[in-house]
Amino acid sequence: MITLSVNKKTYQLDVDPNMPLLWAIRDVIGLTGTKYGCGAAQCGACMVHLNGEAVFSCVTPVSRAVGQQVITIEGLSAGNDHPLQLAWQELDVPQCGYCHSGQLMSAAVLLRENPNPTDEDIDQAMAGNICRCGTYSRIRKAIHHAAELQKNGK
């Protein structure tokens, strides 16, 4: 049995400790906001926070998360109102939307560690997340907007 804390809730899972965290979250716990994109840590669609770091859950064995805090897109905020979520909504960033769970989890680490990022910081932080619809320019704008919201205590 593997004990996991996901979005501050405890789950007991009867899974192979080598099962990637992604599939434990999606297929066993049933939270589907975290996406499968490549299975090889190439695209970032599967990003979740493990003790606050944006790990690629498709290559992270579930055993690594035992006793740690996992936060998925569903747990990024209680009311879909993290400054990044608000900014994403304000600028209508997503198109198909499939990659954006990962984009947001990635951006959340950036904003926490650098509340006032430049375009260059954004590019460096977000280069692990592929968006096939090509929403990159809006991602940049929205992160700047979220930084403003964060500063204003939203």
Binding site: L76, N80, Q89
Partner: peptide, 10 residues
């Protein structure tokens, strides 16, 4: 877009 909020929280 009406679908945006659905796409920011999974």
């Amino acid at each position: 877009r009406q679908d945006t909020p659905l796409k920011t929280n999974g």
